[in-house]
Each structure stands twice: as structure tokens, then as C-alpha cells.
Amino acid sequence: MSARRIALFGGVYGNRPALEAALADARAKDAEAVYFLGDVGGFGPHPDTAAKLLCDARVTCIQGNYDAAVAVGADDCGCGYSDRRDVRFAHIAYVYTLGHSSSEHRRWLGSLPPLGRITLGDRRLLLCHGSPRQVNEFLWETTTPTGLLERFCDGQGVDALCFTHTGLTWHRALPSGRHAINVGVLGRPANDGLPRVWYTLLTAGPELTVEFVPVVYDHESVARDVERAGLPPEFAETIRTGWWTTCLERMPVKERARGRY
């Protein structure tokens, strides 16, 4: 029988305490299953223990661009930055993550599927990391046309598309009655000046209910672990303040204007 309520997690980015808190929250909210849409590592200090927790909690996982890169030891994370500052910070995060990912962890990352198909009530859902056509495509709210989302749904034969990768939640009910949902990320806050992070609860019914759930966790401990790990202070600042300090190149102007940097 199809589930009626599920939780969808986006990029953990090596932030194990946020993942722990989100798992507990989803259980408390009666989620029947948890799905993770990729990027176990990157940015945060705990890639390996986050991977172990996902496995232990029997979370169904989709592969993100970071996971694919770490699995094969690629040159970079595959986010495609060209801005010199972003390239430098992305490189630091990637080298750290690669160096703190066991061979067992990397094999597991390499085994993850790029797409997932599930049903929720009578709705067919596609789960992916970036977009159905490209693992590292950024589907921001203000640069993703409605017509393109309809085409994705048509092409995949689904009633809802669920994705992550940008780091910011959004939901659009499409004119056809279908849905596009960016589930957010657990690894870093939503560039809104608060340290909380977000996941998504979907509940089946006559209408699909999409709920973005804030997760408050011990962010200070993560910021201290970032510092102890020798990662840049800019990363710890984001964890503490909720404002993005790096990897801003791909963010469109409307989203960027809502942040501090």
C-alpha cells in the first residue's frame, strides 16, 4: 500500500546533528518513510557519520552531484562554479569531504540511483537531486519557468517533481494540477538570518499537502566542529547566522537580494 505521509530531505552537506534532529522530527510527525535527495557531504564537518546515520535509519537515498564526485574522486564537486571566490571555497569543502570519506562510504555513494519513483496516495512522484535531466541543474524558484516544469512532468509521466540542490525550499502548483517542490536542505540554513534548516513533509489527500518544516538543532556545536576541522570561518558564520557567505554565484538576483551577502 502506498504511503500517505512522507518526509523528503535535501543536502545534508556533512551536518550530522541537523540530520539527527530532522529524523527525530519526521518520526514525531508520523512520516511513514524518509527519502534523501542527495549530497551527503560538502560544507560541513561530518560526511562519514552522516552517511552512516542515513544507512542506519534506513533512509532511501538518491545520488547528488557531490556524491557522484566523491564516489569516483573527481576533480571537484561538480557544482560548476566559475566565480574565483566560490571556486576556492568549493574546493576547500570538496577536498575536506573527500579526505573524510571512507572507501566503504564512497562505494555506497557510487551505488546510489540518480532518480527515484514512488507513489504517495494515488500520485506518482519523481525524486531527483538537481533536475530530471541534469544532476547539477539549479532549479531556483525565480529562474525555473512553469512551462519547463510541465515539460519535465510530461517527460517523466509524474504528478509531482521533488528536487533539492539549490538549498532553498519552494513549491509551485502547476496549471495542470501537478506540483514542483524544492525540498530544501539540512546542511545549511536558508539564507534568511536564522540558523534553522528545512525539510519537506508531503501528505496525500484530495489535494497534495506540501509542508516545509523548520528544524532547530544544536548549530553551535556544528559551528565549533567546523572550526576544529580547520574549515573556513565563513562556513561557521553561515551555520551560526543563517546567512550564506559562499557559493552564491549561481543564486539569481531575486533570491540574492533576500540575503545579507
Partner: peptide, 10 residues
Amino acid sequence: LAAASSYSLE
């Protein structure tokens, strides 16, 4: 024009 649209004007 940017404010009136849901899409970004760069």
C-alpha cells in the same frame, strides 16, 4: 518590471 514578475531580472 522586476518586482512585477515572479522571475528574476538580471
